[in-house]
Design a binder for these strands. Structure first.
Lengths: 137, 137
DNA sequence: AATTCATTTGCAACAATGTTGCAAATATAG
DNA sequence: CTATATTTGCAACATTGTTGCAAATGAATT
């Protein structure tokens, strides 16, 4: 599905900023940070605009946010767009990329009495295949 | 084990700030943020001192860091102090507390070919038992 | 095409979190 | 008590994110 269709489907105005973000994230193959998106996106948008766009796109189930430690925030397409289940994420400590591990579903954990879960985040940190090879180990 | 012993054991100088942090985190029953620690700790320490203390204590396996979304950072005792295995964490969206779920170990996931894991973080978000009751649902 | 109106954008200002360099203070060993 | 390496506090700065408000823009209507 095209960015424009995704926006129309949710009654969101199609601005060049939103379109561009969706387009980029769609074709990236990895989650992208605000900075990475700004670098690759033509048309210099204000930081405020980006933050508000991310928020809107997230609230409408177009993007999902992955946070590594603090301060490193990345975005990927949401499951309502990709039709994938909740999955784990992999953060490569070498190249700082975040990838969705679509084959590793997030299982529901047995919580203590009285606890109710709403969402579960699984973040695996390590070295990705590409960086592993380059280490020539 | 007492804070002083923990510090001595690792050849770290026992300063009142480090001692205080360990003492607090030890008796808190939940993970504490920089702000929470500062509020409860006598002796006004500089923010810089806290950040450097956390870093030192983390590097020496005394504390471990739990990050919720971005910007919310909490600390709890590390497994090298508690002798517990890696475990999941629960973040209550109502009272903003973070608790270690010692009974929910973090399992190793089967990664794609070539990927190597170093650490895995499992954060479950929802409502804790206390807040659940108060909602009177 | 032009008009209208709600939404979105850019700007400025601000807040929170975290880092770095450096001089003064402090912990520990001798 | 002294010497020395470590730690602390301060100032300055960087980054990330938010808010209010006026200007610009998207999309529906004429």
């Amino acid at each position: 599905m095209k960015p424009i269709e995704i926006l129309n489907q949710r009654n969101l105005k199609r601005t060049s900023c939103r379109e561009g973000i969706i387009e980029l994230v769609m074709n990236a193959g990895e989650a992208l940070s605000e900075n990475e998106i700004r670098e690759r996106l033509q048309g210099n948008y204000d930081r405020t605009t980006f933050y508000r766009s991310f928020k809107t796109l997230e609230e409408h189930g177009i993007l999902h946010k992955i946070v590594v430690d603090n301060l490193l925030v990345k975005y990927a397409l949401d499951k309502t767009v990709t039709n994938l289940d909740d999955h784990a994420h992999f953060y490569c400590q070498e190249c700082q990329t975040v990838r969705c591990l679509e084959n590793i579903p997030v299982t529901r954990f047995q919580l203590p009495e009285g606890y109710q879960d709403v969402a579960t985040e699984v973040l695996i940190k390590g070295t990705c295949a590409t960086c592993k090879k380059q280490q020539g180990s």
